[in-house]
Amino acid sequence: MVLEVRNISKVYRKKKQKIEVLKNVSYQFEKGTFYWINGKSGAGKSTLIQIIGLLLSPSEGSILIENKDVSTLSDKEKAEIRNQKIGFVFQSFYLNPLMKAYENVMLPMYIHSKYSKEERKEEAFRLLEFVGLKDRVKHFPKELSGGEQQRVAIARALANHPNIILADEPTGSLDPENEEKILTFLKNLAKEGKCVIVVSHNPVTKEYADKILLMERHTIIEEKSYEK
């Protein structure tokens, strides 16, 4: 098992108000599987994915990556896990506008990385070729279309060969054609053995998903109990 959340709760405190977003969430994620987390807006999907990505600490509960409890690690150790074992893809692509495509892809490789300078560049070029942007490597983000930018982001998420890919609304701002391309890439990654978790309220995702999870009443309900 590559990833497990155990009894996760999350409470946001805004001034004196308490907002309970997640309540006792437990789930085990497997390798080689495409998960689609579905749910209404405000259900806590982004919160869950940020907790899984070690960007937020849960109020209660623990996260296990490769059977190791990582929720108690220091900021530095969590950062290293993010860098080595997790790849992120977002709705707004989040590319550095000052860096060319391949430089953006290289960004996670500068730390904790076994790459030399040349290897870094080679790997970035290879990854961009993999997402079909061979002739766009030296373009700046603003010179790329939305779909191309998202593919750069996917290449960047793969930079250090992580086993877990987290995507929050990855097709949220794309047209259907690019949507299909992105989801196909993610699907192929799952086929290669990675654990791909996609948060989306886009029903098309269903066609690609191996497992469908629904977030409701502050927790995860599996596909079996998902009534449509």
Partner: peptide, 16 residues
């Protein structure tokens, strides 16, 4: 700021 936020995602520690 946004770029520093991105760096957090990509595994840079706050110290970095």
């Amino acid at each position: 700021k946004k770029q520093y936020q991105l760096m957090v995602y990509l595994g840079y520690s706050k110290k970095d």
